[in-house]
Design a protein around this nucleic acid. Structure first.
Lengths: 187, 187
DNA sequence: TTGATAACAAACACTTTGTTCTCTTTTATT
DNA sequence: AATAAAAGAGAACAAAGTGTTTGTTATCAA
Protein backbone atom coordinates (compact mmCIF):
# COMPACT_ATOMS: atom_id res chain seq x y z
CA UNK A 1 0.00 0.00 0.00
CA UNK A 2 1.02 3.52 -0.69
CA UNK A 3 3.19 5.00 2.05
CA UNK A 4 1.24 8.24 1.91
CA UNK A 5 -1.96 6.45 2.75
CA UNK A 6 -0.36 4.70 5.69
CA UNK A 7 1.03 7.95 6.98
CA UNK A 8 -2.26 9.80 6.93
CA UNK A 9 -4.14 6.86 8.36
CA UNK A 10 -1.70 6.68 11.24
CA UNK A 11 -1.80 10.43 11.74
CA UNK A 12 -5.59 10.40 11.89
CA UNK A 13 -5.66 7.51 14.34
CA UNK A 14 -3.10 9.21 16.55
CA UNK A 15 -4.97 12.50 16.50
CA UNK A 16 -8.24 10.77 17.25
CA UNK A 17 -6.75 8.87 20.17
CA UNK A 18 -5.20 12.02 21.59
CA UNK A 19 -8.51 13.84 21.37
CA UNK A 20 -10.37 10.96 22.95
CA UNK A 21 -8.05 11.15 25.93
CA UNK A 22 -9.10 14.75 26.43
CA UNK A 23 -12.79 14.86 25.62
CA UNK A 24 -15.77 12.67 24.92
CA UNK A 25 -16.35 11.12 21.53
CA UNK A 26 -19.54 13.00 20.84
CA UNK A 27 -17.85 16.35 21.36
CA UNK A 28 -14.98 15.68 19.01
CA UNK A 29 -15.43 17.27 15.59
CA UNK A 30 -14.00 16.23 12.28
CA UNK A 31 -12.51 19.70 12.15
CA UNK A 32 -10.49 19.05 15.29
CA UNK A 33 -9.35 15.68 14.04
CA UNK A 34 -7.99 17.04 10.78
CA UNK A 35 -6.41 20.01 12.50
CA UNK A 36 -4.67 17.77 15.02
CA UNK A 37 -3.66 15.25 12.42
CA UNK A 38 -2.55 18.07 10.15
CA UNK A 39 -4.40 16.56 7.26
CA UNK A 40 -6.61 18.06 4.61
CA UNK A 41 -10.34 17.87 4.87
CA UNK A 42 -10.63 16.07 1.56
CA UNK A 43 -8.10 13.53 2.71
CA UNK A 44 -10.06 12.64 5.79
CA UNK A 45 -13.20 11.94 3.83
CA UNK A 46 -11.22 9.93 1.33
CA UNK A 47 -10.22 7.58 4.15
CA UNK A 48 -13.35 7.49 6.27
CA UNK A 49 -16.97 8.05 5.50
CA UNK A 50 -17.53 9.85 8.77
CA UNK A 51 -16.49 9.97 12.41
CA UNK A 52 -18.34 6.75 13.21
CA UNK A 53 -16.37 4.99 10.55
CA UNK A 54 -13.12 6.11 12.09
CA UNK A 55 -14.18 4.82 15.48
CA UNK A 56 -15.06 1.45 14.04
CA UNK A 57 -11.75 1.18 12.21
CA UNK A 58 -9.81 2.08 15.33
CA UNK A 59 -11.65 -0.50 17.39
CA UNK A 60 -11.05 -3.21 14.86
CA UNK A 61 -7.38 -2.44 14.78
CA UNK A 62 -7.06 -2.38 18.55
CA UNK A 63 -9.16 -5.35 19.56
CA UNK A 64 -8.12 -7.38 16.58
CA UNK A 65 -4.69 -7.84 18.09
CA UNK A 66 -5.83 -8.55 21.59
CA UNK A 67 -8.49 -11.04 20.71
CA UNK A 68 -6.47 -12.96 18.18
CA UNK A 69 -3.68 -13.45 20.69
CA UNK A 70 -6.29 -14.67 23.14
CA UNK A 71 -7.55 -17.14 20.59
CA UNK A 72 -4.08 -18.62 20.41
CA UNK A 73 -4.14 -18.87 24.16
CA UNK A 74 -7.36 -20.88 24.21
CA UNK A 75 -5.82 -23.45 21.89
CA UNK A 76 -3.47 -24.59 24.60
CA UNK A 77 -5.58 -23.95 27.72
CA UNK A 78 -9.37 -23.76 27.97
CA UNK A 79 -11.13 -20.85 29.54
CA UNK A 80 -10.36 -22.05 33.02
CA UNK A 81 -10.14 -25.68 32.16
CA UNK A 82 -7.17 -26.86 34.18
CA UNK A 83 -8.17 -25.35 37.49
CA UNK A 84 -5.66 -22.83 38.77
CA UNK A 85 -3.72 -22.57 35.55
CA UNK A 86 -1.72 -19.36 35.81
CA UNK A 87 -2.50 -18.53 32.21
CA UNK A 88 -6.23 -18.41 31.92
CA UNK A 89 -7.53 -16.58 28.88
CA UNK A 90 -8.91 -13.85 31.08
CA UNK A 91 -5.62 -13.26 32.80
CA UNK A 92 -3.98 -13.16 29.42
CA UNK A 93 -6.44 -10.53 28.23
CA UNK A 94 -5.96 -8.43 31.33
CA UNK A 95 -2.20 -8.53 30.97
CA UNK A 96 -2.54 -7.48 27.39
CA UNK A 97 -4.61 -4.52 28.44
CA UNK A 98 -2.13 -3.54 31.12
CA UNK A 99 0.75 -3.61 28.69
CA UNK A 100 -1.03 -0.73 27.03
CA UNK A 101 -0.05 -1.17 23.42
CA UNK A 102 -1.32 1.62 21.20
CA UNK A 103 -2.37 3.49 24.34
CA UNK A 104 -5.39 1.31 24.54
CA UNK A 105 -5.71 2.12 28.21
CA UNK A 106 -6.20 5.79 27.55
CA UNK A 107 -9.07 4.92 25.29
CA UNK A 108 -10.60 2.64 27.86
CA UNK A 109 -10.21 5.27 30.58
CA UNK A 110 -11.69 8.09 28.57
CA UNK A 111 -15.21 9.41 28.82
CA UNK A 112 -16.25 7.24 25.91
CA UNK A 113 -14.83 4.04 27.32
CA UNK A 114 -18.16 2.29 27.08
CA UNK A 115 -18.15 2.77 23.37
CA UNK A 116 -14.98 0.71 23.16
CA UNK A 117 -16.05 -1.86 25.66
CA UNK A 118 -19.08 -2.66 23.53
CA UNK A 119 -16.80 -3.58 20.66
CA UNK A 120 -14.65 -5.51 23.08
CA UNK A 121 -17.61 -7.43 24.38
CA UNK A 122 -18.72 -8.42 20.92
CA UNK A 123 -15.33 -9.88 20.17
CA UNK A 124 -15.27 -11.63 23.52
CA UNK A 125 -18.63 -13.17 22.87
CA UNK A 126 -17.33 -15.00 19.84
CA UNK A 127 -14.27 -16.13 21.73
CA UNK A 128 -16.24 -17.55 24.63
CA UNK A 129 -18.91 -19.02 22.42
CA UNK A 130 -16.27 -21.06 20.62
CA UNK A 131 -14.83 -22.23 23.91
CA UNK A 132 -18.21 -23.49 24.97
CA UNK A 133 -18.75 -25.65 21.95
CA UNK A 134 -15.29 -27.19 22.30
CA UNK A 135 -15.67 -27.85 25.98
CA UNK A 136 -18.39 -29.84 27.66
CA UNK A 137 -19.67 -28.12 30.72
CA UNK A 138 -20.88 -29.10 34.16
CA UNK A 139 -24.53 -29.45 35.03
CA UNK A 140 -26.87 -26.45 34.67
CA UNK A 141 -28.23 -27.90 31.51
CA UNK A 142 -31.49 -26.01 31.90
CA UNK A 143 -29.81 -22.63 31.62
CA UNK A 144 -29.38 -21.61 27.98
CA UNK A 145 -25.80 -21.54 26.78
CA UNK A 146 -26.60 -18.30 25.03
CA UNK A 147 -27.33 -16.73 28.40
CA UNK A 148 -24.17 -18.05 30.02
CA UNK A 149 -21.93 -16.81 27.24
CA UNK A 150 -23.45 -13.37 27.55
CA UNK A 151 -23.10 -13.48 31.30
CA UNK A 152 -19.42 -14.26 31.13
CA UNK A 153 -18.44 -11.76 28.48
CA UNK A 154 -20.69 -9.14 30.02
CA UNK A 155 -19.26 -9.65 33.49
CA UNK A 156 -15.74 -9.51 32.16
CA UNK A 157 -16.32 -6.23 30.41
CA UNK A 158 -18.04 -4.78 33.46
CA UNK A 159 -15.10 -5.86 35.55
CA UNK A 160 -12.64 -4.17 33.23
CA UNK A 161 -14.73 -1.01 33.44
CA UNK A 162 -14.68 -1.22 37.23
CA UNK A 163 -10.95 -1.88 37.22
CA UNK A 164 -10.14 1.09 35.06
CA UNK A 165 -12.47 3.46 36.88
CA UNK A 166 -10.80 2.44 40.13
CA UNK A 167 -7.44 3.42 38.64
CA UNK A 168 -6.34 -0.18 38.13
CA UNK A 169 -5.05 -0.80 41.62
CA UNK A 170 -5.25 -4.57 41.23
CA UNK A 171 -2.83 -6.71 39.26
CA UNK A 172 -4.14 -8.81 36.39
CA UNK A 173 -3.55 -11.93 38.47
CA UNK A 174 -5.59 -10.58 41.39
CA UNK A 175 -8.39 -9.54 39.12
CA UNK A 176 -8.32 -12.91 37.45
CA UNK A 177 -8.77 -14.54 40.83
CA UNK A 178 -11.79 -12.36 41.59
CA UNK A 179 -13.27 -13.20 38.23
CA UNK A 180 -12.64 -16.87 38.62
CA UNK A 181 -14.36 -16.83 42.01
CA UNK A 182 -17.60 -15.53 40.49
CA UNK A 183 -17.46 -17.45 37.22
CA UNK A 184 -15.94 -20.80 38.05
CA UNK A 185 -18.93 -21.98 40.14
CA UNK A 186 -21.19 -21.84 37.10
CA UNK A 187 -18.88 -23.32 34.50
CA UNK B 1 -45.65 24.51 39.52
CA UNK B 2 -47.16 26.22 36.56
CA UNK B 3 -49.34 23.95 34.46
CA UNK B 4 -47.79 25.35 31.31
CA UNK B 5 -44.37 24.20 32.42
CA UNK B 6 -45.67 20.72 33.14
CA UNK B 7 -47.33 20.56 29.77
CA UNK B 8 -44.27 21.53 27.80
CA UNK B 9 -42.04 19.31 29.87
CA UNK B 10 -44.31 16.37 29.19
CA UNK B 11 -44.58 17.26 25.52
CA UNK B 12 -40.81 17.40 25.19
CA UNK B 13 -40.35 14.09 26.98
CA UNK B 14 -42.96 12.44 24.81
CA UNK B 15 -41.46 13.81 21.62
CA UNK B 16 -37.99 12.75 22.69
CA UNK B 17 -39.15 9.23 23.51
CA UNK B 18 -40.94 8.92 20.21
CA UNK B 19 -37.87 10.04 18.34
CA UNK B 20 -35.65 7.67 20.28
CA UNK B 21 -37.82 4.80 19.22
CA UNK B 22 -37.14 5.68 15.61
CA UNK B 23 -33.52 6.78 15.50
CA UNK B 24 -30.38 6.89 17.57
CA UNK B 25 -29.80 9.54 20.18
CA UNK B 26 -26.85 11.10 18.41
CA UNK B 27 -28.84 11.67 15.25
CA UNK B 28 -31.74 13.40 16.91
CA UNK B 29 -31.62 17.17 16.62
CA UNK B 30 -33.09 19.77 18.90
CA UNK B 31 -34.99 21.00 15.90
CA UNK B 32 -36.74 17.68 15.53
CA UNK B 33 -37.58 17.57 19.19
CA UNK B 34 -39.21 20.97 19.24
CA UNK B 35 -41.03 20.30 15.99
CA UNK B 36 -42.40 17.02 17.31
CA UNK B 37 -43.24 18.49 20.68
CA UNK B 38 -44.75 21.51 18.98
CA UNK B 39 -42.85 23.82 21.24
CA UNK B 40 -40.91 27.00 20.62
CA UNK B 41 -37.18 26.95 20.37
CA UNK B 42 -36.84 29.40 23.23
CA UNK B 43 -39.05 27.25 25.37
CA UNK B 44 -36.88 24.21 24.93
CA UNK B 45 -33.77 26.03 26.03
CA UNK B 46 -35.65 27.52 28.97
CA UNK B 47 -36.27 23.97 30.21
CA UNK B 48 -33.06 22.20 29.29
CA UNK B 49 -29.55 23.40 28.77
CA UNK B 50 -29.03 21.03 25.88
CA UNK B 51 -29.93 17.62 24.53
CA UNK B 52 -27.72 15.86 27.08
CA UNK B 53 -29.62 17.55 29.84
CA UNK B 54 -32.89 16.27 28.49
CA UNK B 55 -31.57 12.74 28.38
CA UNK B 56 -30.43 12.95 31.96
CA UNK B 57 -33.77 14.34 33.13
CA UNK B 58 -35.65 11.61 31.31
CA UNK B 59 -33.51 8.90 32.85
CA UNK B 60 -33.94 10.27 36.33
CA UNK B 61 -37.68 10.35 35.91
CA UNK B 62 -37.88 6.83 34.50
CA UNK B 63 -35.47 5.00 36.75
CA UNK B 64 -36.48 6.97 39.78
CA UNK B 65 -39.82 5.18 39.83
CA UNK B 66 -38.47 1.74 39.15
CA UNK B 67 -35.68 1.87 41.66
CA UNK B 68 -37.69 3.39 44.45
CA UNK B 69 -40.30 0.68 44.14
CA UNK B 70 -37.50 -1.86 44.26
CA UNK B 71 -36.18 -0.26 47.42
CA UNK B 72 -39.56 -0.86 49.04
CA UNK B 73 -39.28 -4.43 47.91
CA UNK B 74 -35.93 -4.96 49.60
CA UNK B 75 -37.38 -3.81 52.90
CA UNK B 76 -39.51 -6.91 53.13
CA UNK B 77 -37.30 -9.42 51.29
CA UNK B 78 -33.55 -9.33 50.86
CA UNK B 79 -31.91 -9.62 47.48
CA UNK B 80 -32.42 -13.33 47.40
CA UNK B 81 -32.43 -13.81 51.12
CA UNK B 82 -35.23 -16.34 51.57
CA UNK B 83 -34.18 -18.83 48.96
CA UNK B 84 -36.80 -19.32 46.27
CA UNK B 85 -38.93 -16.37 47.29
CA UNK B 86 -41.09 -15.60 44.28
CA UNK B 87 -40.57 -11.91 44.80
CA UNK B 88 -36.86 -11.32 44.62
CA UNK B 89 -35.84 -7.76 43.93
CA UNK B 90 -34.55 -8.76 40.53
CA UNK B 91 -37.77 -10.39 39.52
CA UNK B 92 -39.60 -7.34 40.73
CA UNK B 93 -37.40 -5.12 38.58
CA UNK B 94 -37.88 -7.30 35.54
CA UNK B 95 -41.63 -7.30 35.96
CA UNK B 96 -41.55 -3.55 36.24
CA UNK B 97 -39.66 -3.34 33.00
CA UNK B 98 -42.06 -5.67 31.27
CA UNK B 99 -45.06 -3.66 32.37
CA UNK B 100 -43.58 -0.95 30.20
CA UNK B 101 -44.72 2.18 32.00
CA UNK B 102 -43.78 5.33 30.12
CA UNK B 103 -42.74 3.16 27.19
CA UNK B 104 -39.51 2.45 28.97
CA UNK B 105 -39.09 -0.69 26.89
CA UNK B 106 -38.97 1.27 23.69
CA UNK B 107 -36.16 3.29 25.11
CA UNK B 108 -34.30 0.21 26.22
CA UNK B 109 -34.79 -1.41 22.82
CA UNK B 110 -33.67 1.56 20.82
CA UNK B 111 -30.28 2.08 19.29
CA UNK B 112 -29.18 4.10 22.28
CA UNK B 113 -30.23 1.54 24.84
CA UNK B 114 -26.78 1.38 26.36
CA UNK B 115 -27.02 5.01 27.26
CA UNK B 116 -30.01 4.23 29.43
CA UNK B 117 -28.62 1.06 30.86
CA UNK B 118 -25.65 3.00 32.24
CA UNK B 119 -28.00 5.17 34.24
CA UNK B 120 -29.85 2.08 35.29
CA UNK B 121 -26.69 0.40 36.46
CA UNK B 122 -25.70 3.37 38.56
CA UNK B 123 -29.00 3.30 40.37
CA UNK B 124 -28.76 -0.45 40.79
CA UNK B 125 -25.33 -0.13 42.30
CA UNK B 126 -26.66 1.96 45.16
CA UNK B 127 -29.52 -0.43 45.70
CA UNK B 128 -27.30 -3.47 45.89
CA UNK B 129 -24.66 -1.74 47.91
CA UNK B 130 -27.23 -0.98 50.58
CA UNK B 131 -28.42 -4.55 50.58
CA UNK B 132 -24.90 -5.73 51.22
CA UNK B 133 -24.35 -3.63 54.28
CA UNK B 134 -27.67 -4.74 55.77
CA UNK B 135 -27.07 -8.37 55.03
CA UNK B 136 -24.12 -10.45 56.15
CA UNK B 137 -22.82 -12.58 53.38
CA UNK B 138 -21.41 -16.06 53.03
CA UNK B 139 -17.70 -16.77 52.86
CA UNK B 140 -15.62 -15.23 50.06
CA UNK B 141 -14.31 -12.66 52.49
CA UNK B 142 -11.17 -12.13 50.44
CA UNK B 143 -13.08 -10.78 47.45
CA UNK B 144 -13.77 -7.05 47.81
CA UNK B 145 -17.41 -6.17 48.36
CA UNK B 146 -16.93 -3.36 45.91
CA UNK B 147 -16.14 -5.89 43.23
CA UNK B 148 -19.10 -8.10 44.03
CA UNK B 149 -21.56 -5.23 43.98
CA UNK B 150 -20.28 -4.19 40.59
CA UNK B 151 -20.43 -7.76 39.37
CA UNK B 152 -24.05 -8.15 40.34
CA UNK B 153 -25.34 -4.87 39.00
CA UNK B 154 -23.21 -5.23 35.90
CA UNK B 155 -24.43 -8.74 35.21
CA UNK B 156 -28.01 -7.72 35.72
CA UNK B 157 -27.77 -4.89 33.26
CA UNK B 158 -26.01 -7.08 30.73
CA UNK B 159 -28.72 -9.64 31.15
CA UNK B 160 -31.43 -7.05 30.50
CA UNK B 161 -29.57 -5.98 27.39
CA UNK B 162 -29.43 -9.58 26.24
CA UNK B 163 -33.09 -10.10 27.05
CA UNK B 164 -34.22 -7.08 25.09
CA UNK B 165 -32.00 -7.78 22.12
CA UNK B 166 -33.40 -11.30 21.99
CA UNK B 167 -36.92 -9.83 21.79
CA UNK B 168 -37.76 -10.71 25.39
CA UNK B 169 -38.81 -14.26 24.79
CA UNK B 170 -38.36 -15.23 28.44
CA UNK B 171 -40.72 -14.32 31.25
CA UNK B 172 -39.39 -12.28 34.16
CA UNK B 173 -39.64 -15.37 36.37
CA UNK B 174 -37.57 -17.46 33.97
CA UNK B 175 -34.97 -14.76 33.65
CA UNK B 176 -34.87 -14.39 37.39
CA UNK B 177 -34.14 -18.08 37.70
CA UNK B 178 -31.26 -17.80 35.24
CA UNK B 179 -29.89 -14.87 37.13
CA UNK B 180 -30.22 -16.56 40.46
CA UNK B 181 -28.35 -19.58 39.14
CA UNK B 182 -25.30 -17.47 38.31
CA UNK B 183 -25.46 -15.09 41.26
CA UNK B 184 -26.68 -17.15 44.15
CA UNK B 185 -23.50 -19.30 44.37
CA UNK B 186 -21.42 -16.27 45.23
CA UNK B 187 -23.76 -14.50 47.64
C1' DT C 1 10.93 9.43 -16.40
C1' DT C 2 6.21 9.17 -16.48
C1' DG C 3 1.50 8.18 -15.57
C1' DA C 4 -1.27 7.37 -11.65
C1' DT C 5 -2.52 8.37 -7.19
C1' DA C 6 -2.85 10.84 -2.97
C1' DA C 7 -2.92 15.05 -0.54
C1' DC C 8 -3.93 19.80 -0.36
C1' DA C 9 -6.42 24.43 0.03
C1' DA C 10 -10.27 27.10 -0.79
C1' DA C 11 -14.78 27.67 -1.51
C1' DC C 12 -19.47 25.93 -1.50
C1' DA C 13 -24.22 25.08 0.13
C1' DC C 14 -26.23 23.29 3.83
C1' DT C 15 -27.55 22.10 8.68
C1' DT C 16 -27.42 22.66 13.57
C1' DT C 17 -26.79 25.25 17.56
C1' DG C 18 -27.73 28.46 21.12
C1' DT C 19 -28.95 33.32 21.86
C1' DT C 20 -31.57 37.60 21.55
C1' DC C 21 -35.37 40.21 20.49
C1' DT C 22 -40.34 41.45 20.51
C1' DC C 23 -44.96 40.16 21.13
C1' DT C 24 -48.82 37.24 22.82
C1' DT C 25 -51.00 34.10 26.03
C1' DT C 26 -51.72 32.08 30.40
C1' DT C 27 -51.50 31.96 35.26
C1' DA C 28 -51.84 33.27 40.19
C1' DT C 29 -53.13 36.95 43.20
C1' DT C 30 -55.87 40.48 44.81
C1' DA D 1 -62.64 41.37 37.00
C1' DA D 2 -57.97 43.61 36.93
C1' DT D 3 -53.27 43.15 36.88
C1' DA D 4 -48.49 41.91 37.38
C1' DA D 5 -45.54 38.07 36.63
C1' DA D 6 -44.29 34.15 34.24
C1' DA D 7 -44.20 31.23 30.14
C1' DG D 8 -44.42 30.51 25.45
C1' DA D 9 -44.17 31.69 20.27
C1' DG D 10 -41.72 33.10 16.36
C1' DA D 11 -38.29 35.21 13.76
C1' DA D 12 -33.82 36.37 13.06
C1' DC D 13 -28.80 35.95 14.21
C1' DA D 14 -23.88 34.62 14.30
C1' DA D 15 -21.02 30.88 14.88
C1' DA D 16 -19.60 26.43 14.06
C1' DG D 17 -19.77 22.02 11.77
C1' DT D 18 -20.70 18.92 7.71
C1' DG D 19 -19.74 16.82 3.46
C1' DT D 20 -18.72 17.91 -1.43
C1' DT D 21 -16.55 19.99 -5.40
C1' DT D 22 -12.73 22.03 -8.06
C1' DG D 23 -8.24 22.86 -9.48
C1' DT D 24 -3.47 22.37 -8.17
C1' DT D 25 0.71 20.30 -6.32
C1' DA D 26 3.53 16.62 -4.40
C1' DT D 27 4.72 11.80 -4.12
C1' DC D 28 4.84 7.12 -5.36
C1' DA D 29 5.55 2.71 -8.01
C1' DA D 30 6.89 0.80 -12.21
Amino acid sequence: MDRRQQKTRTAIFAAFSALLAAKSYSKITVQEIIDTANVGRTTFYAHFEAKDDLLKALCEELFGHIISSAVDCTHTHGLYSDGNAPESVFCHLLQHLQENENNILELLSCESSELFLRYFKNSLNDLIQNQFVNQNRKNNTDIPQDFLVNHISGSFVEMVLWWIKGRMKQTPAELDRYFQSVIEPIL
